[in-house]
């Protein structure tokens, strides 16, 4: 960062140094270099200290055995070798995959609700905000609300199932259903988020193109697919980014609703890592770090793709 180039647009700045003393001339000449440096320093230092270095430390730690108190002991790839035979790790990885795939349903669901609400009738603004509601409340509360919703004795779900002669279903107590139950709870706020993205996107759809397509006889699903959805691309991209990140970050809901159970069947990597490193199951920091590294590498594939897309966009800009 020591050698910064002046912006081309700044060539027109008159040189005030010609009739000034030599002391402030250096400062003045280099202020285009110094200013960004000073503006960036606090933020960058903070970010390096709390985010970038810890990532590297975690990588390093994953080669050690450490209980958080004593001296860390270097064991090379041992933690990773152990992961290969760890059933619980395998279950968590599969559950992460389920989360990733099913969480994407929030995108079409959000689009559907947005299309449903994209009208101008009285009170629609209030309806839109109320539909958005689930996203604003914390995942902890969403988790509590849904664990009561699923409750086998008094939950609303079983109440409704009872009316149609089904159930009772203990969603959170059934190892085969539990992950799907939690994902459904997570989809609730995530769909609301995608909905608001699409509502904004729909607002910006070019009305002339829609009219032109209408004159050409396009309507309904055809219109949606060939005219509207291509115009919603930016909204879809943002929805995709936040949904993927949300799916891989899922922790709160699992911690609140099942605490990984029953029999560890609802764990995902983020939760399993926490359990290994920080809970009553033992302070295995090194092993936890190894799990976190795996999760990080999965995320890195997506981050690389996001950055690449942003870079393509940015080249077009100033």
């Amino acid at each position: 960062m020591a050698q910064m180039r002046l912006a081309p647009g700044n060539g027109s700045t008159p040189d005030p140094t010609s009739h000034r003393g030599p002391q402030d001339s250096w400062l003045r000449r280099n202020r285009q270099t110094l200013a960004p440096l000073l503006f960036l320093a606090p933020g960058v230092i903070f970010f390096l200290f709390y985010v970038i270095f810890p990532i590297l430390q975690s990588f390093n730690l994953s080669f050690y055995r450490w209980d958080g108190l004593g001296e860390p002991q270097f064991i090379g790839m041992e933690n990773y070798r152990e992961l290969l035979d760890d059933r619980a790790f395998e279950v968590s990885l599969w559950n992460n995959l389920k989360w990733l795939l099913l969480y994407l349903l929030a995108i079409p669901a959000g689009l559907f609700i947005a299309l449903f609400l994209n009208q101008t009738v009285t009170g629609i603004r209030l309806y839109k905000s109320l539909f958005f509601f689930p996203f604003v409340i914390s995942q902890v509360v969403v988790g509590l609300v849904f664990s009561w919703f699923y409750d086998p004795t008094f939950g609303l779900l079983n109440q409704v199932l009872g009316w149609v002669g089904l159930g009772p279903l203990n969603v959170l107590g059934d190892p085969t259903l539990v992950t799907y139950g939690i994902i459904a709870a997570g989809l609730w706020p995530q769909t609301a988020y995608c909905m608001i993205l699409y509502l904004t996107g729909l607002n910006a759809v070019d009305p002339e193109q829609v009219e032109a397509a209408r004159l050409d006889g396009a309507k309904g699903a055809k219109m949606l697919w060939y005219v509207i959805i291509p115009q919603l691309r930016p909204a879809t991209f943002v929805a995709f980014v936040v949904t993927i990140i949300g799916a891989l970050r899922s922790f709160d809901l699992i911690s609140i609703m099942t605490n990984g159970g029953p029999f560890g069947s609802s764990r995902v990597l983020s939760f399993y890592m926490f359990e290994k490193a920080l809970s009553e199951y033992g302070f295995r920091m090194g092993y936890g770090a190894a799990i976190a590294v795996v999760l990080f590498l999965i995320m890195l594939c997506f981050i690389a793709y996001f950055l690449w897309s942003m870079y393509q966009d940015d080249k077009g800009g100033r």
């Binding site: 960062m1 050698q3 910064m4 180039r5 270099t33 960004p36 960036l40 960058v44 970010f47 709390y50 985010v51 970038i52 810890p54 990532i55 430390q57 975690s58 730690l61 958080g68 990140i245 891989l248 970050r249 922790f251 990597l269 983020s270 890592m273 926490f274 490193a277 920080l278 920091m285 936890g288 770090a289 799990i291 976190a292 590294v293 999760l295 990080f296 995320m299 997506f302 981050i303 996001f306 950055l307 942003m310 870079y311 940015d314």
Partner: peptide, 24 residues
């Protein structure tokens, strides 16, 4: 300046990382 986009992408990428890699 050189490294502008790199720094920017550092912030963006850091914002997306899983919390668990930072936890310990």
């Amino acid at each position: 300046f050189r490294g502008n986009l790199l720094l920017f992408f550092m912030f963006v990428a850091g914002n997306f990382v899983p919390f668990q890699i930072l936890m310990v």
